[in-house]
Design a protein around this nucleic acid. Sequence first.
DNA 1: CTTCTGAAG
DNA 2: CTTCCGAAG
Lengths: 254, 254
Amino acid sequence: MLCYSWNVNGIRSVARKDLLPWKVLPRADVICLQETKAQQHMLETSLGEPDGWHSHWHSAQKPGYSSVAIISRDAPDEVMHGIGDDTYDSEGRVIAARFGTLVVISAYFPNSRDGGARLDYKLAFCAQMESYLDHWRKRGFEVILQGDYNIAHNPIDLARPKENQKNAGYLPQERAWLTRFLALGYRDVFREKNPDLPGAYTWWTNWAGARGRNVGWRIDYSCVSPGLYDRVTEIRHCPEIMGSDHCPVAIEVR
Amino acid sequence: MLCYSWNVNGIRSVARKDLLPWKVLPRADVICLQETKAQQHMLETSLGEPDGWHSHWHSAQKPGYSSVAIISRDAPDEVMHGIGDDTYDSEGRVIAARFGTLVVISAYFPNSRDGGARLDYKLAFCAQMESYLDHWRKRGFEVILQGDYNIAHNPIDLARPKENQKNAGYLPQERAWLTRFLALGYRDVFREKNPDLPGAYTWWTNWAGARGRNVGWRIDYSCVSPGLYDRVTEIRHCPEIMGSDHCPVAIEVR
DNA sequence: CTTCTGAAG
DNA sequence: CTTCCGAAG
C-alpha cells in the first residue's frame, strides 16, 4: 500500500495549476491531504469527489482555513472525523481511515505562531493526539500518522537551525514533544532510514527563492506505530512535485 | 491640453501588468484616475510619485477602497481634495486640479448597488457635485468633470438596456439625474460628437468574455462646462488600452 | 510570498 | 470574474 501525505496549501490552488494530487502522485493507494482550505460543500464535485476515488474530508468551521482529507482507491472500512475534542475538531485538523487492521491518519498540527502565541494550544493538541492514537491501538490496529507536524525535530531537519531557535516550528517545547512521542515507540521512518542525510526538507517559505536554494524545513512526517516499522518497504520525499510550498511524502507498507 | 480619465481598478494591479497610466497613455498632459484602491502611503514612490509627473491623490479612509488621483506634466496652480462634505470625502471620490482658468476634476461616483441599496447616497453625491461645480464656476473657471459616473445614460449607452432596467448603473433615478445635469448646460462631449454611435462602451464586466464580445456600458464621461465645449478638439475612448475592466477616455481642449 | 475569506464592483 | 483587505502560514 503506497500512501502519500501532502500539505497542498489550498486544494483549489493546486487545481488551478492542474496539479491535483490524484493526478500527480504516481501509483497512489491512499492520499492524505492537509490545508485543503475549503469546506467540502464549497468544492466542485471534481475536487470534492474525484472520479475513481473514495474521498473523505474534515473541514474547519472557519471557511478557507486548515482542513484535511483522505482520498483512497479502496473504500475504507471505517472513517473517523476529528480527534474527539471540539477544541481541535472545529479546526479540521485530523481525519482517519481504517483499511483492515491499518489506520491511516491525515493530521495538520497547529502552527505555534510568532512569539509562541499558540504554543499551548499546539502542545495540548499533541497530548490529545497521543490518547487518540492509543484509542486505535487499544482496538488492535497499527497506525500511520501522516501529515504536517509543523515541527522540525533536530538541527539536521532544517537549513538554519541556529537562526530559528525562537521561531514557530522549532521551539524547544515542540521539539521536546516530538522527542517524547518517539520515545513512546513511534518511528520517524524517514529519519531512521536516512539518519545522517542533510537537506531533506518538505517545506520551503515562498520568499526569496528558498526552495530553489533548498533553504527548507522537514516538518511533514510519516510516523508509524512500533509493530508497523518492519513492514515499511519505502519512504521518500517528493521534492520534484510542485504546486504547494510543501512537497509530498510517500510511505509504502506491505 | 490632452486629458485622460481611467478607472484603473487598482493602480497596483495595472502596475503588476506593466500597464501604468503614465506609460501607456500617449502624449498625456493630465491623467485622472479612479479606483486606484490604495492610500498614498501604501504605494511605493514609483507608483505614488512617478518620476517626471506631478501627482495628487485623494484616498478613502478604508484601505483598498475607491480613491482617485490626478497626475499631470505641469504643476497645478491649485489642488482641491474632496467635495467639501465628509460623507463623501471619507470615500476618496473627488480630486480637482486647476491649471489657469481650467479646472480638471477626477470623480468616482458611487455605485448604486444591487437593489439600489446605495441609490440615495449616490443621488445625494450627485446633488453635492452640482454645488461643487458651481463653486468653481462662480470663481470664473471652466470645468471638465472626468471620471466614472457609474451611470449609463440612455439605451444607446449599454449593450443590454432592456435587461438592465433594474440594475445598478441604469436605474431610472440615476439616468434622470444625468439628464437633469446636462439640462443645466454641461455637455456630454462624447455623445454630442457621436450622437448615433452604438457599441461605444467604457466598461465591460470581467465575466464570460464580455469585452471580447463588446457587451459593455458607457459609464465613464468627460463632461465640460458650457463655455468649454467649443474649445474641445478631440474626444475618444481608448478600448485598445488593456489592464482594467474600464478603458480610458481622452479629451483634448485648446 | 502565497493562500484564503468577504466586501465591493 | 477581479480587485483589494487582513488573517494566517
